[in-house]
Design a binder for these strands. Structure first.
Lengths: 115, 115
DNA sequence: TACGCTTATGAGCATTTACTCATATACTAT
DNA sequence: ATAGTATATGAGTAAATGCTCATAAGCGTA
């Protein structure tokens, strides 16, 4: 229990989760949307995965992270809280705007294969 | 949001909250039940109060802390989570046992006035 | 094979956090 | 008033955490 709260007790990690409410993203997309270094993005994602909040899979050179279904099933109250509150983070609208720009500009390799 | 998670990201503070599920307690009761120093108990309680999870009032020389009703009202999902999970903390049964001992032995002054 | 892109991680450093010890304040009862 | 109890908090220290820079490993394409 305390491990989950430790993972949630960091603003950058909450911003990551707010983006992942909409679906999965790879590390470089998160890095771009949140304007953080590759190193930081990777480490924060690893921390969220380690405590079970996120899961990941690899496709080609990309690692995709998304909410862990088991976490959602096993933490319904907390998940309701997160779904509501992550969307009212002060940074949320700006981060979403960056996400749209990234998608429009085709960041990461432009010709990713579907998966 | 992050301030609340920071406050919850500490095992001693979760144990304090688990005791306060049942009702209010003064600092020296928490200190005794959780076998922590007076200084630590006071500081952890102050941290939980500062972010709005707890509220407190004074009566004679005692300060009583309890869950903040406004927090419960405004964080229903998180509160459901806490109510469930605090009771399955590894330390919970032992801490409750200490609480019963404290009450039986009349710790704090034995002749507290009702309030 | 060689190169570029993506990701993970080691090392060093700065900041934050939690702890202990000491002390100050406030209240009660004698 | 004086002593005892309860609480809060300053100072110093040790541990944990997050950041940057550098590097290594994996994968795809030319």
């Amino acid at each position: 229990m305390v491990d989950i709260f430790k993972a949630l007790a960091e603003e950058s990690r909450l911003r990551i989760l707010s983006l992942l409410l909409e679906g999965e993203l790879c590390v470089c997309e998160i890095e771009a949307c949140l304007r953080m270094t590759q190193s930081n993005a990777s480490r924060h994602l690893a921390a969220l995965k380690k405590c079970g909040i996120l899961e990941s899979y690899k496709n080609a050179q990309w690692t995709y992270y998304k909410m862990n279904d088991a976490f959602i099933q096993q933490n319904k109250g907390l998940w309701e809280h997160l779904k509501d509150r992550l969307k009212v983070l002060p940074s949320y609208l700006l981060d979403c705007e960056e996400y749209r720009k990234c998608k429009a500009q085709g960041l990461c390799r432009q010709n990713k294969k579907p998966h």
